[in-house]
Computed example of a mutant assay.
Amino acid sequence: MRDALRLFQAEWVRSVILMRRYAGNTVGSVLGLTIVFLGLFFSTRYVSGMSSFGERLDSVVVGYVLWSLILFVLADVSMDAQNEAQTGTLEQVCLSRFGLTRVFVLRSLTRVVWTVLMNAAVLGLICLVTGTRLHLSAWLVVPVASALLGAFGLAFMFGALALGAKRIQQLLNLANFALLFVVMTPFEKTAPGLFPLLSLLPMVPGAAGVRAVMVDGSAPGLVGALVMLGSGALWFALGVQVFRRADRAVRARGLLGSY
């Protein structure tokens, strides 16, 4: 436990240093995501000749910001594996007494704070320009945590691919568009009969919970909260297990340090 806390502290300091050193990149990411949505917003309003997205604007805003949050999370582990391999430090991390999986898990946890803050800034800018009003509640922590856990589960699966293939950027790009459909589609309203089955997909229960809290102003309840957290925890555990097996496989085949 003490070693884990020391590692978490070291990774936290590392993340702070990187955020300070590359602050321009962070600001650019926030402005870029905001400009993309505003371009979509104003172009749609011009073409339709009416208020963009009609009465569904709040749902679209929530879905877009949640999708951008997942984009950052999804790229974390796989890009870390690629960068470590390119710089020649992947073997050093793997041979440390903490192990590759533990280092990447705690590194991902330290980045959650920065990722959430960045996307909160994107949400604030979009709401300010478009005039969107959303509900905020303490219940929001539950669906956001569920979505983040599911996203990290997928991130570790892609990270497992990156350990062997090293370059999976095009696959990540395809996954990003697929997740845009998964996150922004309100399955709980468009397909209520299939929603229990669709809830087996990662981040679907969390995305539905975020819309329920921020758009409808309703609380998920105890059972709903347990379902969302259980789904996220299941995908997270599955992703970490896949990453751990991939770590062992590439080391056994001597492919860890190859690029």
Rank of each mutant, 00 (worst) to 15 (best):
L148D: 01
L197H: 13
Q92F: 12
Q9M: 14
V213A: 06
Q9Y: 15
G193W: 12
L198C: 10
S15G: 06
W139P: 00
P186M: 10
L95T: 12
R2W: 05
F187V: 15
F41W: 10
L38S: 07
V27T: 11
A121H: 12
V242H: 05
Q170G: 11
F156P: 08
L200Q: 07
F37V: 03
M157F: 04
F158Q: 04
G54C: 07
G193C: 09
V116I: 15
L194R: 06
L100P: 12
T110S: 14
F156T: 03
S96K: 09
F243Q: 04
A207G: 09
R107Y: 10
L134I: 07
P202E: 04
N83F: 12
M118A: 13
D58A: 14
V36R: 05
A145F: 09
T190S: 13
A85F: 00
L148G: 00
Q241F: 08
V77H: 01
V227H: 08
A155T: 04
V129M: 05
R2L: 14
L117V: 15
A165L: 14
R97C: 06
F158M: 07
S29K: 07
S43T: 15
A225F: 03
M228A: 09
F243Y: 04
M1V: 14
A145Q: 02
V65P: 00
L123Y: 07
L163I: 07
A155C: 09
D216S: 11
L40Q: 11
R133V: 02
M50A: 15
D247H: 11
C94I: 01
V105R: 01
G88V: 04
G224R: 04
V250L: 08
E84W: 08
L171R: 12
V141H: 02
S96F: 04
S59R: 03
C127T: 09
T110P: 08
S96A: 06
R111F: 02
D216Q: 08
W139N: 02
P192D: 01
G232E: 02
V65D: 00
I70G: 02
V227W: 10
F72M: 07
M79H: 14
L90T: 09
H135F: 13
R111T: 06
P205K: 02
G131M: 02
T87N: 11
F42L: 11
G257Y: 02
F98I: 06
A10C: 06
S108P: 12
G88M: 06
R102H: 08
A175K: 08
S231D: 05
G150I: 06
A252N: 11
V182G: 06
R102G: 08
L172A: 12
Q86A: 14
F41I: 01
D58E: 15
G206V: 05
D216E: 15
S59D: 10
D76M: 09
V142P: 00
G54R: 03
G131H: 05
